[in-house]
Every structure is written in C-alpha cells, then in structure tokens.
Simulated scan of single mutants.
Amino acid sequence: MHTIERLSAAEFGSRLEELADLLVDAVEGGASVGFVTPFGREDAAAWWKGRAAAVADSAHLVWGCHAGGALLGTVSLLLADKPNSRHRAELVKLLVHRSARGRGLGRALLAEAERAAREAGIELLMLDTETGSTAEHVYLTGGWIRYGIVPAYAGAPDGTLLDCSFFYKRLAR
C-alpha cells in the first residue's frame, strides 16, 4: 500500500536526501531528466535544495509517494508566473525508483498531480519527455496529446542527444 501526499515546505526539507536518492536512481537508470554523468547524491541534493524557495512560495508543488516510510516516487508541478499564463503549469520530475516500478506508482502520481492542478484552477498542463521512453507511453495512454517531437533536444546521462516529445493535457473544470 502506498500513500501520495503533497510535501509542505517543512516536509520537503526533511525529505531532501530521499528526493536526491530518487533523482540519482533516475540518472543512473539512464533517464533523461536534465543531468549528465558523473552525477552523485551531492549534485542531486543541491538541485533539490535549489528548489526550496519555490516550494515555500508554492510556485513549485511537490508530491511524494511513500510506502512503509520510504519515498518511492515523486512528481512536481511548476506554476506559471506570468499574468497571462496562470491557467497553466508544467509537469516535471515524475520519478519512480527503479525498485518500485511496475506497480502503477507513476500513473498514481500523475493522476494526483492532475487532480491537484484541476482543483487549483489549472486548465492546461505541459511536459516534455524522451521520445520512445516508458514515460512517453504513460503519457500517451493517460490522455496526454503529443504535439511535437524535437530531434536531439536533450542529452541522456551519457551525453547522447535524444529526441524529445512535447505533450499537453487540457483539464476539465
């Protein structure tokens, strides 16, 4: 059994090391999530710590999925800061530890982020992901619409340039 909860600023601070572990696991697993190797726990912790002010200001919303006290996954929403784009947000860092994959946690995290966005009045979600990845399949089967593929958009952890698919999802009011 797992639980998904939005992390308050205090909870975010107390879970930084676990969030760092999730990010390191993703990079070590070859996920194109913005980082290249070598990439260690200190790098991951520094990245998450750099988000603390945005989390405290509720500009970066973070959810954690845990079971038995262990953090198994996370997802975030970055809220738009421009007056003409407050109706949209970007879904980022949907991560599930490799040891916990195949249990539907990614889909559960995605559904929770969508639910919370809808509740907050967000009408449009955007994201990008590696073309042909497992994550892309999750979005395609979850009602997201791919509106384009950009060749050689982002690097894999080993530096190889990868095509990325860009998605949106309109949320019902």
Rank of each mutant, 00 (worst) to 15 (best):
M1P: 10
M1F: 06
E5W: 00
L7A: 09
S8E: 13
S8L: 14
A10Y: 07
E11H: 13
F12M: 04
F12Q: 03
G13Q: 08
L16I: 09
E17Q: 08
E17C: 14
A20V: 12
A20N: 05
A20T: 09
A26N: 05
V27E: 10
V27S: 08
E28M: 13
E28A: 14
V33A: 08
V33L: 05
G34Q: 05
F35Y: 03
F35M: 02
A45G: 07
A46H: 02
W48H: 11
W48N: 04
K49N: 14
G50K: 01
R51I: 11
R51N: 13
A53S: 06
A54Y: 02
A56V: 05
H60S: 08
V62D: 08
C65N: 05
H66T: 14
G69L: 00
A70I: 15
A70S: 12
L71K: 06
L71Y: 02
L71E: 06
L72G: 01
G73F: 00
T74M: 05
L78S: 15
L79G: 07
A80Y: 06
D81F: 00
K82V: 14
K82W: 09
P83K: 10
P83T: 13
N84I: 03
H87G: 12
H87E: 04
A89M: 12
L91W: 05
V96Q: 01
H97N: 03
G102H: 05
R103S: 12
G104E: 02
A111V: 15
A111L: 15
A111W: 00
E112N: 09
E114S: 07
E114R: 09
A116E: 14
A117Q: 03
R118S: 11
R118M: 01
R118Y: 11
E119Q: 13
A120D: 13
G121Q: 10
I122P: 03
I122R: 04
I122N: 03
E123V: 13
E123C: 12
L124V: 14
L127E: 02
T129C: 10
T129D: 04
S133C: 12
T134V: 14
A135K: 11
A135H: 07
V138I: 15
G143D: 12
G143R: 01
W144F: 01
R146I: 00
R146M: 05
R146T: 05
Y147R: 12
G148V: 07
I149F: 01
G155R: 14
G155I: 04
D158L: 03
L162D: 09
D163L: 04
C164H: 12
C164L: 07
S165Y: 03
S165H: 04
F166I: 13
F167A: 04
L171S: 04
A172V: 11
